[in-house]
C-alpha cells in the first residue's frame, strides 16, 4: 500500500506503456464521449466519466479473425493456422464494474471444461490497474450487484483518489514487483480508513433507486429464479424490444458470439468471431428449423434469466449483471436492466 502524488499516475502509465500496449479511458476530442481503448500515458484520463464502451473488446473483440486457412489445389494441402493475439496489454484505470465484468467473462471462457485458447492468449500477460469510483455516475447501481464502487479483487494495482493524493493498493505479486522500484511512500491504516470513508460517501451518492434498498436486484433474482413472473410481464417487456442486440454488445459480462468463414481477396479463408446477442431470432434457431425461443418475449426473458437467476450465479459465483447501467443508455425500447428490475418489482408489490 503506497501513497503517491497525483502527477505520479502518469509515471505509472509511462512505465506500463514501455512493456505493454496501454488501454484506458480517454475523451473523444470532437464530441466529448469517453471510450476505453488504446491510449498513451499522455491522453489517458482517469477523471473521465465511466467509458461508454466496456473494456471487453480488448479481450473479446467485436470482430476478430481466429483462424486462417488456405488450400493449395496443386499440392492438395491445406494450411491451417490459428490466429492469436499475444501482445501484453495493460488495462489502466478500470472501474470496478468493468473489472467484475472481465472476471465474469474469464469464468465463461477459461473457467469451464473447454478453455478458449483465443481468449486465453488475449488475457495472459495482462496487467490491471483499477480505479475506485469515489463519485458514482447517474446510471450506476453496482452497489446492488456486489461489484463496486471499489474493486475487491482481480487487480494488480488499485488506485483511489484521496483528493490531494492517490492511495495505491497492491493486489498481486506482479503488481508488487512492478511498483517496488518507484519508491513511493508507504501508506498507513489512516489512508485506508480515508479510502473507506470515501467509498461509503460514494455509496450515499448513488441514485435513490440503487440505495434505498440494496436488495433491489437480489429480490428480483429470487423472483426470476423461482419462476413466479407472470407471462404478461415478459410480454410487456418483450413488446418493447426492437431486436437491435445493443444490450448484449455493451454488457461488460455478455459473452455470446457467432462464428463465420469468409473468403478474402488474397485467396485465403478467414474464420471470424463476432459478438452476438440472444435478442436475435437466428441466435437460438437450431438446425432443422426448431427455435425454442422464437417469440421476442422468450428471447428477452432469456437475457434476464442469464443475468438474474441463481443457476447462472452458481456458475459464475455472482449475478450476471455488474450494475454499470450501460444497457439503459443504449436501449431503443427503454428496457435496460434497471427498468426490467423495476417492472418485476412492481409486480412483486402488486
Amino acid at each position: 500500500m503506497y501513497l503517491m502524488k497525483k502527477n505520479d499516475v502518469k509515471k505509472i502509465a509511462k512505465a506500463l506503456e514501455e512493456k505493454y500496449t496501454l488501454y484506458g479511458p480517454y475523451v473523444d476530442e470532437a464530441f466529448g464521449q469517453c471510450f476505453f481503448d488504446k491510449v498513451t500515458a499522455d491522453n489517458v484520463d482517469l477523471n473521465a466519466s465511466i467509458p461508454t464502451n466496456p473494456p471487453k473488446h480488448v479481450v473479446f473483440p467485436h470482430l476478430e479473425t481466429i483462424m486462417q486457412y488456405k488450400y493449395d489445389k496443386t499440392t492438395k494441402k491445406a494450411d491451417i493456422a490459428m490466429v492469436f493475439d499475444d501482445t501484453p496489454k495493460a488495462l489502466f484505470g478500470l472501474r470496478s464494474c468493468d473489472l467484475t465484468g472481465l472476471q465474469c467473462i474469464d469464468r465463461f471462457f477459461l473457467g469451464q471444461e473447454f478453455v478458449d485458447e483465443v481468449y486465453r492468449h488475449h488475457r495472459s500477460r495482462m496487467f490491471i490497474v483499477a480505479n475506485t469510483c469515489v463519485v458514482p455516475f447517474k446510471q450506476c447501481f453496482c452497489v446492488c450487484t456486489d461489484s463496486g464502487p471499489a474493486a475487491q479483487e482481480g487487480y494488480d494495482l488499485n488506485l483511489t483518489n484521496l483528493g490531494d493524493s492517490y492511495l495505491l493498493e497492491v493486489g498481486s505479486e506482479k503488481g508488487k514487483a512492478f511498483i517496488e522500484s518507484f519508491g513511493f511512500a508507504k501508506a498507513t491504516e489512516e489512508h485506508l480508513k480515508q479510502k473507506q470513508k470515501l467509498v461509503e460517501k460514494s455509496i450515499t451518492m448513488f441514485e435513490d433507486i440503487a440505495t434505498e434498498s440494496k436488495a433491489w436486484v437480489s429480490r428480483v433474482m429470487n423472483r426470476v429464479t423461482t419462476g413466479f413472473i407472470k407471462e404478461e410481464v415478459w410480454e410487456y417487456i418483450g413488446n418493447q424490444c426492437i431486436e437491435c442486440g445493443a444490450c448484449s454488445y455493451v454488457c461488460p459480462s455478455c459473452t455470446c458470439f457467432n462464428i463465420n468463414d469468409a473468403n478474402t481477396i488474397a485467396g485465403n479463408t478467414e474464420r471470424v468471431r463476432t459478438w452476438d446477442s440472444c435478442s436475435y431470432e437466428g441466435y437460438s434457431r437450431m438446425a432443422g428449423g426448431h427455435n425454442p425461443r422464437k417469440p421476442i418475449e422468450d428471447r428477452r426473458n432469456k437475457r434476464f434469466f442469464c443475468k438474474l437467476s441463481y443457476s447462472q450465479s452458481k456458475k459464475y459465483l455472482r449475478p450476471g449483471c455488474v450494475g454499470c447501467g450501460r444497457c439503459a443508455w443504449v436501449c431503443p425500447g427503454d428496457i435496460g436492466l434497471p427498468n426490467v428490475v423495476t417492472y418485476i418489482r412492481r409486480e412483486i408489490h402488486e
Binding site: F31, G32, Q33, F35, T52, N53, H57, P61, H62, L63, I242, E243, C244, G245, A246, Y249, T274, Y280, W329, V330, C331, P332
Partner: peptide, 24 residues
C-alpha cells in the same frame, strides 16, 4: 473493427439498430 453509438448525437442519442450495430 467495430462500431459504437454516439451518445451525444441529437437524433440517435446513443442508440443504433441491428443494422447499425453491425455496419463494420
Amino acid at each position: 473493427q467495430g462500431v459504437f453509438p454516439s451518445r451525444v448525437h441529437p437524433v440517435s442519442k446513443g442508440r443504433l439498430c441491428v443494422r447499425g450495430w453491425n455496419i463494420h
